[in-house]
Design a protein around this nucleic acid. Structure first.
Lengths: 159, 159
DNA sequence: GGCCTGTTACTCGGATATAAGCTGTCCGAGTGTAGAGGG
DNA sequence: CCCTCTACACTCGGACAGCTTATATCCGAGTAACAGGCC
């Protein structure tokens, strides 16, 4: 899996801690985690296309959350970065080779292998959609209650 | 996800339909689905290393199931082909940049983002482990009851 | 003093190189088989 | 007729290229802020 997912989630949490007062530039977010600025910008653009973030152009511009953290699920972020298509793609190899001269209606029903894989992937997607970023933020603050304050201080220091 | 997973599952089903009378060469299995022989051989070797298949060397050699289909889960096959490591790898970016000068015990607990992603992946793995290849075979035969006969006929034709 | 305008600096956004991993291929080591020869 | 030895052909197994995808980077279009000039 692409590591851009981790970057995206952390950036969303950071944006939430900073509040929506003013947008945060990609370069600033990248500095906060020592990430390559331009490449992180690419991931943020994907989040904008998915409707998770909003981008503000011009001076004092940057990115901000498009909606509150309670309404953003892990599924939204993963789908934005990794793409909406399924990880397992059935190539229908059952029709090739020995299955070439099969009667017409044999392949009417989807491949049993594909069905089984899709069932597992659905469980994954459901687990992702069941968790909002707000819950993750709450879990992080349960570990370190002053995390939000620390983020705001770091961004206020020289930003 | 690698398409070798689909190949591996279909080959296991084929081996089960043919029975354990005699091992089946990789070239024969590849012909059955019009797959590149040498590359399929690579995937089959991975299954052997995982203990799912057994390989027989020499003339009249080939591959056979190491245990009955009821005792092989989708998880076994996926882990054998894709590798046992998790898809989501936490890079611990929370420690970099703004989190560099944090106190000692802050990162004692695992990252909340990583925990959330791991939870979803665990659901995926559980769904994979809950399905045996025998159940998939049963589902396939429910769609086409004469599938096993067809496979045996094709392999008996010129093999 | 207030308003308008031109400049400017800063931002996003997409087009462009580079590296890694998946896909595909090839050849050698090993081994069971089959056949021939001898007892 | 049966046993043994030898040569062989077939198999797996790992080492070697080609290509798609992910990673990283750069530069241009656009825009909001700001300063200066004009009313």
């Amino acid at each position: 899996m692409s590591e851009g997912v981790e970057w995206a989630v952390h950036c969303c949490l950071t944006l939430a801690w900073l509040g929506d007062e003013r947008p945060v530039p990609a370069a600033r977010l990248a500095a906060g985690y020592e990430l390559p600025t331009a490449y992180l910008n690419k991931q943020l653009q994907a989040l904008v296309r998915a409707g998770v973030l909003e981008s503000v152009a011009g001076a004092k511009g940057g990115f901000r959350l498009a909606r509150p953290l309670e309404k953003i699920t892990l599924m939204d972020v993963v789908a934005a970065v990794e793409g909406p298509e399924d990880a397992f793609q059935c190539q229908e190899i059952r029709r090739r080779g020995m299955g070439a001269g099969a009667p017409e209606g044999r392949y009417r029903a989807p491949c049993a292998v594909s069905t089984a894989m899709r069932r597992a992937e659905l469980a994954w997607r459901r687990a992702l959609a069941a968790q909002t970023l707000a819950e993750i933020q709450a879990a992080a603050e349960r570990q370190a209650p002053d995390l939000g304050r620390g983020v705001r201080r770091w961004y206020g220091q020289d930003g």
